[in-house]
Design a protein around this nucleic acid. Structure first.
Lengths: 338, 338
DNA sequence: TTGTAAGCGTTATCAC
DNA sequence: GTGATAACGCTTACAA
C-alpha cells in the first residue's frame, strides 16, 4: 500500500505549531523564530515530508512545467538528432530553475490544436517553447492573443512580435553556399524541409543570396522540399540526379536529409565529394558515422535551447528576458563530403 | 494581458444553473436534464471554456502526467536514437489516454535521487517508466516500497517483483552471436554499456551461452564495457584491436556503440566485414547511414514503449495490467557489416 | 512572531 | 434532477 500521505497539518501537529508556520518555514520565510524553524525542519526531515506539487500548482497558479510540442510524426522524431539534443538541453536548463519538461507530438493540424488546447488552455504548463514555425503560424497568433508565455526557436515576422532565439539561418546558408562556390561548385542544389517552414525559407534565401553574390543564376529546378521523411529526401535526391547536368553540390536543411540524400546518390553511383559535394546542418553525431564524413553547419543546439529556456522561465516568472530576439552564432565544420 | 480565466462559476452564472451542474455536464453525468445540459454546453462552447488541469489534479489526486527519467548526461542522450524512439512512442500511446509525458535526465546519483524525489514524492506525476535498470536498483526498491506505480523497461529480479516490459535480451544476444558463429566467426568480442546495467549483463549472458553451445571458449579479454560515450566505445575497440589475434567479430550493445567501434576499426585499417564483422542492437536509422550498413537486432521500440505505457496507465487507473512481465520479440536484420 | 482563515477551481456528497 | 457545501493541500493576507 502506498504510504499515507503526509501533509503540512501533520507536520504542524507533531512540531506543535500551526500549519501556516510549517508552510512559512518551507518557503524560507525569514520571520519565523529560529527555534520553531528548527523544530519544524526536524519533523520534516524525520518524516521525509515533501510538499504536494498539485496543491502548490493550484494555489500558486503555476505548474513549474514547460511544454515543448513537436510537430512531427513519432517516426520522424525517432531518428532525428536535432530533437534529442533540443530536449536534452531544455531539460537540463529547466532543472536549474526547478522546472520540468512536458513533451508532446502532433502530426495533424487537428491534433496540434488539441494539444495546444490541452496544454495551455488547461494551464497544464506555464509556458511553451515552439519550434519549426511557419510563415503564418496559427499557434503563434493564438498564443500571442491569449497572452500566454512562449518563446520561439526560429524566426517570425514581425521579428519583435515574439520572443525568439535563433541562429542566423540566412547568414549560415549563405556562408555554406559561399564555401561550396569557392571550392569550385557551380550547380548547387538545395534540399529543404516543408516549404512552409521559416527555417526552410530562410536557408533558401541565404542560398540564393550567395548565388547572386557570385553572379550564379538561380535555378528553381535545383530546389527541393521534403517532409523530413527518409523517403522524401531520397526522392528529392533522385529527382536532382535526373537533371542534366545534375547538380555538383547539395546544401541540405539538416544532417538527416543530407545523409539520406548522400545514401541515394551513392546508391546511384555518384562519387562524393568528387561528383557531388554535400553540406548539412546541425553537426550531429551522425556526421561522423556516414561515409564520407559529412560537412555540416554547427548550430549550437544546447546554447539555443538554453537561451530559449531561460527566456521562457523569465517570462513565466515575470522578469524581463535578456532580449526580444537572441541570435546564436554558426560555423562550418569541414569534413570529407565538401 | 492574459484573458481573465474562465471558471465553472462563470459558466454557471451565464447558463443560469449552479456550478455543480456545470461540473456534472462536463463530466458527462447522465442525470442532468437535457435542457440544462444543452444550455451549459452552449455557454461552454461559446466561451471556449476548458477546465483547469491544476484544480483537477488537486481534486482528483491525479495529474495525468507520466514520468520518464533518463539516466544519461544530456550529451549522451543527444545522439541516441533509442531514446528518441522511446520518447516518441510513449508520447503517442499516452496521448490516447489523455496523458502527457514529463521527461527528465539525471547523470549523477545525487540528482537521480533529487529527481525521483521531485517527481513522485511531490506527486507531480502519476507513474514512472524506468529504463536501464541495474542489478540492484535503489530506484526500484524505493518505488516498490512506496507503492508508487511504475513499469520497468528491462528486467529485474525477482522477475515478478515488478511490472516489466522487455525483449528477450539473453535470447536475442544468443541468436546474434550464433549467427556470427555460423558465418564462420570464432573470436567474437562483446562491447556492452555500463557493467551494472541489466541489459549489459543479459546480452553478455546470451553471448556466452551461444559460445558455449558451440564449444567456443569464453575469453574475458574480448569483453568490454562502455559508458555510452563515443570515446569509450572507440577506446574499447582500440583495446580489442590490440589483442593478438584480434577479434573477428564484435557484438555491440547498441547501434551507436557499434557505429563508433566500426569507425575506430576503419580508422585503423580494418576491413569490414572481411576482417571483423559487426552487429548492433535497435535497428535504428543510423544502421543505414553507416558504411558498411550495420547488421542489427531489431527491437521493436514502439511496441515496447506502447506496452509499457499501457501497462503503466492501467496501473495508475487501478485496472489490472495485461501481465506482470511482457516480452516483445526480436529479429536479426542482416545488412553488410555481418 | 505566530495563528486563523480565506481562497485557488474542481469534484462529489449531501440534502432538497 | 439540482443546488449548496465540504473537501483536495497549500499559500498568504489579516488578526492577534
Amino acid at each position: 500500500m502506498r504510504a499515507a500521505k503526509l501533509k503540512q497539518v501533520e507536520i504542524a501537529r507533531l512540531a506543535g505549531v500551526s500549519q501556516a508556520t510549517v508552510s512559512r518555514v518551507l518557503k524560507g520565510n525569514p520571520q519565523v523564530k529560529e527555534e520553531l524553524r528548527q523544530r519544524v525542519l526536524a519533523v520534516v526531515q524525520e518524516l521525509g515530508y515533501v510538499p504536494d506539487a498539485r496543491a502548490q500548482s493550484l494555489r500558486s497558479q503555476r505548474t513549474r512545467l514547460i511544454g515543448l510540442v513537436v510537430h512531427r510524426a513519432p517516426a520522424a522524431l525517432a531518428g532525428d538528432p536535432f530533437f534529442s539534443a533540443l530536449i536534452a538541453a531544455i531539460i537540463e536548463h529547466a532543472a536549474k530553475h526547478d522546472y520540468h519538461l512536458c513533451v508532446d507530438t502532433a502530426r495533424t493540424a487537428r491534433s496540434q490544436r488539441a494539444i495546444y488546447e490541452e496544454l495551455l488552455r488547461t494551464r497544464r504548463v506555464d509556458g511553451l517553447i515552439l519550434v519549426e514555425s511557419e510563415t503564418r503560424d496559427r499557434r503563434i497568433e493564438r498564443l500571442t492573443s491569449e497572452g500566454f508565455p512562449f518563446v520561439l526557436i526560429g524566426r517570425y515576422e514581425p521579428e519583435d512580435a515574439t520572443y525568439s532565439v535563433d541562429n542566423d539561418n540566412i547568414g549560415a546558408a549563405h556562408m555554406a553556399t559561399d564555401y561550396l562556390i569557392r571550392t569550385g561548385r557551380r550547380r548547387i542544389a538545395y534540399i529543404g524541409g516543408p516549404a512552409g517552414l521559416t527555417v526552410t525559407r530562410d536557408r533558401l534565401q541565404g542560398y540564393r543570396n550567395a548565388l547572386e553574390a557570385h553572379g550564379i543564376p538561380y535555378d528553381p529546378h535545383r530546389v527541393m522540399f521534403t517532409d523530413f521523411s527518409e523517403r522524401s529526401a531520397a526522392n528529392a535526391m533522385a529527382e536532382l540526379l535526373s537533371l542534366s547536368p545534375h547538380p555538383d553540390a547539395v546544401l541540405a536543411l539538416d544532417d538527416v536529409i543530407a545523409a539520406c540524400a548522400m545514401l541515394e546518390a551513392k546508391r546511384r553511383g555518384v562519387r562524393i565529394p568528387d561528383d557531388i559535394a554535400f553540406v548539412g546542418f546541425n553537426d550531429s553525431p551522425l556526421c561522423r558515422y556516414v561515409e564520407p564524413e559529412l560537412t555540416s553547419v554547427v548550430v549550437d543546439i544546447p546554447l539555443l535551447a538554453g537561451k530559449a529556456t531561460e527566456t521562457l522561465i523569465a517570462l513565466v516568472e515575470g522578469r524581463a528576458p535578456e532580449a526580444k530576439r537572441q541570435i546564436v552564432p554558426t560555423r562550418l565544420v569541414k569534413r570529407e563530403s565538401a
